[in-house]
Amino acid sequence: MLLDVRNLTITGQSEHGPVDVVDRVSFSVAEGEVHSLVGESGSGKSLIASAIMGFLDPRWQVRADRLWFDGKDLLSMSKQQRRKIIGVDIAMIFQDPRSYLDPNDTIEAQLAEAILTEDLDAKHWWSRRSERRQKVIQLLHRVGIKEHQQVMESFPFEISEGVAQKVMIASAIAHRPRLLIADEPTTAMEPATRAQIYRLLGRFHASHKMSILLMSQDMGTIMPESQRLTMLYSGQIMESGPTEALLKEPFHPYTKAITSTSLYQQSQCQPKTHLPTLPGASPPMQHLPIGCRLGPRCPNARRQCVVTPSIQKFRAHVYACHYPLNSAGKEQGLKRSDIVRAEVDSDTEQEHDND
């Protein structure tokens, strides 16, 4: 397993005291796998990505039973040890690329800085500059930027959002990382540009067997190559499983609601038709509900939901729900009926013995 996360908890400070904004999240990314982490805004996706990269402010407390990359414990590493992995074996694409590009440097200067001296073939320092420039041009061509001269001479504020994201991808793949974390890389982009970015990521995944952890807000923006899907809501895992199986037969009400909305938007809708939506909004950090955090919005919520559901496994799915849907719900209902029947049979036997 390339990335292994077990019971990751990220605690922040609110006016009412410490709050577990990310609550015991577990998932893994295998070598060469595309794993999509889907959740609404505020679900904790960016916090999880920053915890893996080691970018979180010291005010956030990060705990985990396991936060391993390629068998190495990231939490126990020093900053110097972590820097040898981050940016080389692990790279990240951010939501707003312009905010992470230096406004005072040209694109060429920033991409040239991303190329390590160890990756250059030139033996003498005076010939390294021209080789770096050639490698920058190659990187821009690989991400689909043909007019390299104009882009190289530009500053970040002079290029479009789509081109800035491609530049960010070029910087991230400069060292051919084993794991690429893409934190909503197509936010606020036009559909054509969004499709172009995902085709680009899919090409790198296919050609270099690069693992990708993709953060997304809805099902409509996950990569077609996604092999595994994890649903995240308000810092808690709702459901996880193979993408195709999970979309076909979701076990969690949240997965079903998000899937239905996405599929409905893609289909041909009649004018003035109400879209299927989940009522309410994600709770703020200061007022997280007890138990299952989806409870106040869940259409299947009952009294038992004030208790945090344990992680259950059924077939290839992992889910956290007291009242799951479809096959898992039928199986769980069958088990409950068997327990009740066994208790009734036991009482009947006791009555006969007493007689």
Rank of each mutant, 00 (worst) to 15 (best):
L288S: 03
K335H: 09
V25L: 12
I145Y: 04
Q304R: 09
L214R: 10
S127Q: 15
E158K: 04
S327Y: 09
I290P: 00
S36R: 07
P299C: 02
R176P: 14
S171Y: 03
G329M: 10
T348Q: 15
R302T: 09
L214S: 04
R128Q: 14
D57S: 13
T243K: 14
G235D: 07
E131C: 12
R142P: 05
L116H: 03
V19L: 12
L140I: 11
V136R: 09
A91T: 01
M168S: 15
K248M: 07
Y254N: 07
V167T: 03
I107F: 12
D73Y: 05
V136E: 10
I311A: 13
L2E: 00
K256I: 03
Q134N: 14
K335F: 00
P299F: 07
R98P: 02
T221N: 04
S240K: 08
G280I: 06
L2N: 08
A320H: 02
I173E: 09
Q138A: 14
R176Y: 10
L120P: 08
F55I: 04
L67E: 08
I145A: 08
F69Y: 14
R303D: 11
D218E: 13
G220H: 03
Y264C: 06
K330W: 00
R83Q: 13
T117S: 07
H175T: 06
V167S: 05
T221L: 02
F55V: 01
K256G: 03
F155I: 06
I93D: 12
A320S: 12
R6L: 08
K135A: 13
G235R: 06
L334A: 04
A172W: 00
R199C: 05
R178F: 12
P58N: 07
R83F: 02
I52D: 02
R178C: 09
P58F: 04
P299D: 01
N354C: 00
L139D: 12
P250R: 05
S267Q: 15
Q350F: 11
H148P: 07
L111V: 07
L263E: 13
L200P: 03
E239Y: 10
A114Q: 04
E33Y: 06
T117A: 15
P58K: 02
M231K: 00
G54K: 01
Q217W: 01
K313Y: 06
D355V: 08
K313S: 08
A281L: 09
M223W: 03
L67M: 15
Y233E: 05
A257K: 09
M53F: 04
Q270A: 09
L180K: 09
N354H: 11
S310K: 10
V151Y: 02
Y323P: 00
C305V: 14
M189F: 01
T117D: 12
R341C: 04
T106H: 06
E239M: 13
P185K: 15
S36Q: 10
D20F: 00
M285T: 12
I159F: 15
C269W: 08
R6V: 13
K84L: 14
H205Y: 07
D347I: 11
E244A: 15
R132F: 13
I311Q: 13
V25T: 10
